[in-house]
Amino acid sequence: MDTLDQLKTRIEAAAPGAQVEIIPNGSPANQPSLLVDGGHARAIAQFLRDEPALAFDYASNVTGVDWPEKVTREKVKVKKVVDGVEKGVEELCEKKTPAYLEAVYHLYSMANKQGPLIVRMRTENRTDRVSLPSLTPVWRSCEFQEREIFDLYGIVFEGHPDLRRILMWPEFTDYPMRKDYVEADDYEYEPTPHDDVLAKAKRHYPAGGTPA
């Protein structure tokens, strides 16, 4: 299989204007991924599927990941003028990584028996601009998996033939897999007899102490 750099140049040649970035992977698994922008994702996907040398005809896994905003503080040496003398001073610098939702696609080639090609797409933020193009018209296997990401994370896939909740019931309102999801107090019918779960659930019992 081509290395990711070669693939990146081929993709950029085939879909002009696409912004493709290589995201490295820290673990010994050695599975770096390609970050593509939403505007050209459909064209890139079609190129990956139809190009005979690549022939990525099988989208194995479509995952949603939630990356809430993270604030990291690190000490940075900054040149500052102190008492008329310029010297390097250590300052606490706050870095904010933006919040976004991400969809990760694992692509394989059944025709050429090639290994995983990992493609990622990110939304702009977690609140209102959460739409990404759906790759279901390219790979049918994304159909249920993109529905699941919509259900559990809230990413709206444009172009999906049938986007509705798949695992939760249709009237459910929140997105359970997000990191800031708060469970309802009385979600456990019979909580374990100790713990703060029991304390929370007891607030909903009728006066008398036992569940209804």
């Binding site: 992977n25 673990s27 896994n61 990760v104 694992h106």
Partner: peptide, 23 residues
């Protein structure tokens, strides 16, 4: 494990069973 991600898959009796873990 060190920060990173991995996707591992096997031929389960029903098909491809894969796990994707981000650490």
């Amino acid at each position: 494990p060190k920060p990173g991600e991995a996707y591992g898959r096997i031929e389960g009796p029903k098909g491809e069973l894969g796990f994707y873990v981000i650490s």
